[in-house]
Every structure is written in C-alpha cells, then in structure tokens.
C-alpha cells in the first residue's frame, strides 16, 4: 500500500527541512482555522495555491483529495436555508469561511507535510518533543499498515474467489466481522515478532532517528518569507 503520494519530487519545497515545513505548517493552519477575517482567509488560500504550484505536486491527486474535503463542506452550503432562515447573506459568509479554511489547510497538508517522507516527519515531530513512546508506536504503526493491508487484500481476494459478494445483508456484516477477527488474531504474531526484534536490538526505551539534517540556506529563506507573511496576516486581521 503506497501511503506517501506526494513525497517524491525535486521542487524547492521537497528539499526543505521537515522541521521547518512542519513549524510553518502549524502556524499557518492554526491561524487559518481560527481567524474570523474573510480577507485573511482569501490570502491564506492564495498562499496555499502558491505553495501547491511551487511544490509541483500531482494536480489530479490534489483535486481528488479536495473533492472529498468539499463533499463535507458542500453540506454547509446546502443547509444554509435551514440554518439561517431569512439571513442567507450571513449564512453564505460563514459557509464561505468554512470552505476557504478547509481547502487552504488541506492544500497546506499536501504541499508542506505531504512532500516529506512520513518517517522524516515523525523524526521532526520527535525533535519538537513528541514523547518517545508515541513516536515509537508511530514508526511501528506505519511499518505495519502495509503488512496488514496486504493481509487484508489476500483475505478479500480469497473471499471473492469463493464466490462471496458484499451486499446489504446480515451475512455480509457477520462475515466482515469474522474477517476482522482473523486480522486481529494474526496481528498477535506480528506484535510478537516486533517485540522480539526490539529485544534483539537491545531496546532501551528510546527510538533514535537516522534523519538528522542541519538547516540550510533555503530553509532560512523559506522560514523568513513565511514569518513575514504570517506577521502581515496578523496585522491585516
């Protein structure tokens, strides 16, 4: 199972340090989510588009993701006449704010966080103080998602070959439950293997990361530009 859709590339953003990208991402996304000003939201949305163009990530995949995000957002537009009877303008403003916020943050995620490999992102979060246990669980979990997804695909194929079809009936739900039981049952063996591997490597309660890169010139350029932009946004607001 391929989890990192946007992580490969050779744009300016792909070569930035993960710690810089995550720091900028946190400031931008939280300010976007919390600001009440529509002007600021338009500017953040424009900034997210700029990042998308600079990162040169697959536009088709970005649009697919945004489609899913906007299905939830569309609901707030459809419901305006019910939520704001007689005050459609106010309702539309709120729905517009929700739309801009959700889309801008989704593009920030793809362009800033998505352009780094997951393991490097976790390593960056670790250097920001994420607890050791949590980062360890994170590393293992990501590793095992593909293993268990392969298990699941195998089970599903086997069911298909035996003539099982997913339909809305009691049997489908019971069989799905049993399949889930098999996945959980097998996961015990995976966790034993993992524990034994930890013992073999002399695990002492700390997960060291192999990714420790120093900040380069580009990182300073990017973080200064972002800082200036962020201050402008606070000032406009």
């Amino acid at each position: 199972m391929h989890l990192e859709v946007f992580s490969r590339g050779n744009s300016f953003i792909h070569f930035l340090n993960e710690r810089v990208k995550i720091a900028v991402f946190i400031f931008f996304s939280f300010h976007t989510a919390l600001t009440p000003s529509l002007n600021v939201l338009f500017l953040y949305f424009a900034a997210s588009l700029l990042l998308f163009f600079v990162a040169r990530i697959n536009a088709k995949k970005v649009l697919q993701r945004l489609y899913a995000v906007n299905l939830f957002v569309a609901f707030f537009w459809i419901i305006i006449p019910l939520s704001f009877p007689g005050n459609y303008r106010h309702g539309a403003e709120i729905a517009l704010a929700v739309t801009l916020k959700a889309n801008a943050i989704a593009v920030f995620v793809m362009a800033l966080v998505g352009t780094s490999p997951l393991m490097k992102n976790i390593s960056a979060l670790q250097s920001f103080g994420m607890p050791d246990k949590l980062s360890g669980i994170f590393y293992f979990c990501i590793k095992y998602i593909s293993v268990l997804h392969a298990d699941y695909t195998k089970l599903k194929e086997a069911m298909k070959i035996r003539g099982f079809r997913f339909k809305t009936k009691l049997k489908t739900y019971l069989v799905t439950g049993n399949m889930l039981g098999i996945l959980l049952f097998r996961s015990r063996f995976h966790s034993e293997t993992l524990y034994n591997a930890m013992l073999c490597r002399g695990f002492e309660g700390h997960f060291s990361s192999l990714f420790k890169e120093k900040l380069k010139g580009k990182d300073f350029v990017f973080i200064s530009a972002s800082f200036v932009f962020f201050i402008c946004m606070l000032w406009i607001q």
Binding site: C141, I145, Y152, L180, L183, E192
Partner: peptide, 18 residues
Amino acid sequence: MPTLAVLTSVFFVASLIH
C-alpha cells in the same frame, strides 16, 4: 507497545473497509 502499534495498524486498515 508493539501490540498497541500493530493493533493500531489493524484498526487503520479496517477503517478502509467499505
């Protein structure tokens, strides 16, 4: 910890089941 991590992956994969 390994048990929790692997079980988390199971639930993550299970959330992809439609």
